[in-house]
Amino acid sequence: MRNLTAYQEVKQKITEDLVRGRYPMGQALPAEKDLAKELDVSIGTLRKAVDELVAEGIVVRRQGRGTYVAEHDIKRLLYYFFHVVKHDADKKTNPRVDLVSLTSATATKEEASKLQIKEGAPVWRLVNCLYLDNQCVMIDQISLDKKRFKNLTRTEFINREGSIYQLYQMKYGQTVIKSSERLRAGMAGKQHAEWLGLKPDSPVLIIRRVASGIQDEPLEWRVSTLNTNQHEYFSELVV
């Protein structure tokens, strides 16, 4: 196992505390001087560790107030994880998600690989219709490890406060920090075409996403089908 530098050790300790729930979402971390004293490191070492946590979206700095554990509010959802806009639009539109189905199943080979669980392990499968301006523009097929999301119910999902990722965080302590995605062209099957208001075999965009947590563990496997007639996938890189 490789040796960690001082700031990497500090980052690891803070991350472990976050995973254990010592610092709940939205709560401020201790003042820098207090946390540095607790961890027996310099302010500079602590700041370097926190800088990386900020860069990774795990914590956020609020000017004049301190550093807080990131929450999945609507702003974070729209600007970090929601990427569908109207053609040539320069801003995102607030989404609405309607649950089509939630079923219990056993993991396929692909689900097991993406969620890093055993093939045949129990999973939840969800199908969502995502609406913009009251038009269904995307279908999400979501797979979740039942061990992480025990006792998930249709009622709980429908009546959640906030986004899906807020539900993961608030109810199950599973915080999505980042996602990795692959895009490909495809054709809409009969059911997807009906939901999206398309003819069968119409061209669509397929987005395959793994959403990961604080320790880079996969929390969600999602395959999304996007109607690109009036909408497109938006991505912005800052370098």
Rank of each mutant, 00 (worst) to 15 (best):
V69R: 03
L205E: 08
E181C: 13
Y233F: 15
R96L: 05
A89H: 08
M187V: 08
S179A: 06
G173H: 00
E156L: 14
L152F: 00
K92P: 11
Q12S: 09
I139Y: 04
Y131D: 02
E110W: 05
T103L: 12
L4Y: 03
K147W: 07
V238Q: 11
G189E: 04
Y233L: 15
V239R: 06
N151Y: 01
E156D: 08
D133T: 03
G189H: 02
R61C: 04
D98F: 07
K33T: 07
P24K: 00
Q27P: 04
A89E: 10
K75C: 12
R160V: 01
W221F: 15
K146C: 13
F81M: 03
G26M: 04
L35G: 07
T225R: 00
R148T: 11
A28H: 01
D145K: 01
R61S: 10
V239K: 10
A193T: 01
D90V: 09
R62K: 15
A107L: 09
A31F: 08
R125N: 07
F149V: 03
E32W: 07
T108Y: 02
D216H: 09
R47A: 06
V84R: 06
N134K: 15
P203F: 03
N3E: 15
L130K: 15
R2Q: 10
R96Q: 04
Y68A: 09
L99T: 13
T67E: 14
I117V: 11
K37I: 08
L102R: 09
L78E: 14
L99D: 13
I139S: 01
L77V: 15
T5M: 07
N134L: 07
G44E: 12
S104N: 13
K190D: 09
P122L: 03
V176H: 01
C129W: 04
T5V: 04
E32N: 13
E71M: 09
V50K: 12
R160K: 11
K190P: 00
G57C: 11
S42Y: 08
V19N: 05
K146F: 03
R62C: 13
T175N: 07
H231W: 12
I139E: 00
L78Y: 10
N134T: 13
Q174E: 04
G21D: 01
A121E: 13
K13F: 04
V50P: 09
L205T: 10
N227T: 05
L29N: 12
T93W: 02
V176R: 02
I207E: 02
V59D: 11
E38I: 09
I214Y: 02
W221P: 08
Q230D: 15
E181Y: 05
I206R: 02
G120K: 08
R148W: 02
Q8Y: 04
K190L: 05
E232Q: 14
L46N: 10
K171D: 00
F81Y: 13
L126C: 04
S235C: 14
Q169K: 02
L152D: 01
I214H: 06
R62Q: 15
E16N: 14
V239A: 13
C129A: 05
Y80E: 15
V238I: 07
L77S: 12
L46H: 14
L46I: 05
V123N: 06
E56F: 08
A31H: 12
L132F: 11
I164D: 02
E111I: 12
E52H: 11
E52M: 06
N128V: 00
R154S: 10
Q135S: 05
L237R: 15
G57Q: 06
R22N: 06
E232S: 09
L196P: 00
Q27W: 00
K91F: 13
D34R: 10
K114V: 12
G162L: 00
